[in-house]
Structure formats: C-alpha cells, structure tokens
C-alpha cells in the first residue's frame, strides 16, 4: 500500500499542496478529481520521489518510509509514474523504451514475462517494436509510457491525465486496459480530466480544491454528490 501523509508542496512562496493525505492499495483504482492547478500533478510527482518531502510529511510504501530517498528508490519500492508529458524516450525505439522500463532491479528477473504481458495488453506495440517512439501517434506514445511503467513491475501505478489528447475511441481502449491492470493486483492512482470516465472505473476518489483534500468517498457516492456533479461532471 502507498500512503501519502500530510504532504505539502511549495513552489517558492506559493503553496501548491497543503497537508494532503492519500492512500492507494494494490488492486484498486483511486481517482483524484480537481480543477486545473488544484495540486493533483504535484501530489503524483511527490509520490514518485521527484519533489522534496518537507516538514512532517511522509511517503510510505508498505509501511516503509521512503520520503527522503532518491527517485530511483521509489521505483525500486514499486511506484511507477506516467507523468502528464509522458516522459518517454522519444529517440529510442518502442522495444528500447520497454527494456528501460525493466531497468529497476526489482523488474529484471521477470522482464520477459512482463514484456509479454505488456505486448498482449497493447498489441499495437508488438507491431511497432522497432519504430522510434517520436514518430508515433499520441495514443501510441501513451501506450508506450504506460507499458514502460508496467515493465518496472510496479505495485502502484501513478497516472497523470492519461487520456489527454486521445480520441474517444482510444480513450475507451485505454480505460479498458486500466481495468486489466487492476485485475493484476496493481493499484492505480489516477488523475483524470474526464471525471465521468474516471469515476466510472475507479473504486474510490479524492476531491482536491486549492491544494487541499475536501472529499474522500467511494466512486458511487462521489458520482451522486451534488457538488462534484456541478464542478466536474458538467452538472445536470
């Protein structure tokens, strides 16, 4: 289980995230809702070890405090981030990207098995294995990004706006693959602009407003919550 406790993130004087606590367990999808600038991406970046953790905050993976470890140890602990810009290796091939995903020591032994799993999850990648990622479409690049994260044998997957820029068709495909990933006992923390889709697939959700958690409920309750409907579901 990933546990984020009382996390605050500052950019200079500006406090982007204020004492946010979030947990994600294996085998569940947790969605984070919030307007632009509510601090969702900052929470994910901190949870991947890319931001310094300050004050009394802590990030624990299966009970072990990894707050002050470098980013590579977050990956070794089982946390894989797919950031909003996807952070793929554009000049390398699909296969090289996926191989790099298995660079963490925890992933090396099962590299072959994980590669087969990723290829069956995203058959397009199998066809394009020798292609440079730069020349691929946005949807295919997103598959590479998620596939690469899966190659590191994560316990928890952090996804920042994975559906951004995808057609509705690809978007549906993407969300179906998230359900498959969940069934493999991997936990997913999802930041999603498409709140309707996000809530439809998620088990639980958090609402972030101005850097604070203002709601934490099951998806059903959030979907029927008047405030959430108004703010994120286009209210009706």
């Amino acid at each position: 289980m990933l546990e984020i406790r009382d996390l605050s993130v500052f950019y200079g004087q500006h406090r982007a995230v204020e004492e946010v606590s979030v947990t994600v367990s294996r085998g569940e999808i947790v969605v984070m809702l919030g307007a632009n600038g509510a601090g969702k991406s900052s929470v994910l970046r901190a949870a991947a070890g890319l931001l310094p953790v300050m004050n009394n905050a802590a990030i624990l993976m299966d009970g072990r405090d990894i707050s002050h470890c470098p980013a590579d140890e977050f990956v070794e602990a089982g946390i894989a981030l797919v950031p909003e810009d996807r952070a793929i290796f554009a000049d390398l091939t699909v296969l090289e990207n996926l191989k790099l995903g298995a660079y963490p020591k925890r992933a090396r032994q099962k590299e072959r098995e994980n590669l087969e799993n990723v290829m069956s999850l995203f058959p397009k990648l199998e066809e394009r294995r020798r292609q440079k990622v730069r020349s691929m479409s946005g949807g295919e690049q997103q598959m590479v990004a998620i596939g690469r994260a899966m190659m590191s044998a994560p316990a928890i997957l952090l996804l920042d706006e994975p559906s951004l820029g995808l057609s509705p068709l690809l978007c549906g495909e993407l969300f179906r693959s998230l359900a498959v990933i969940r069934s493999a006992e991997i936990g997913i923390l999802l930041v999603e602009q498409n709140a309707k889709r996000g809530l439809a697939i998620a088990d639980r959700g958090y609402v972030l407003e101005n850097g604070r958690v203002t709601g934490s409920e099951s998806s059903e309750i959030l979907s029927s919550d008047e405030r959430v409907r108004k703010a994120y579901l286009g209210g009706d």
Partner: peptide, 17 residues
C-alpha cells in the same frame, strides 16, 4: 542503453530507476 536513456531524457531516466 541506460547511458543513451540519460542522453535522451534525464527525467524519464530517473523514472525507470
């Protein structure tokens, strides 16, 4: 490959440990 990964994208490289 790790060396080339750092050349292409250092942030992404740290995301694969």
């Amino acid at each position: 490959l790790a060396l080339r990964a750092v050349a292409v994208n250092p942030t992404a490289a740290s995301l694969v440990a």
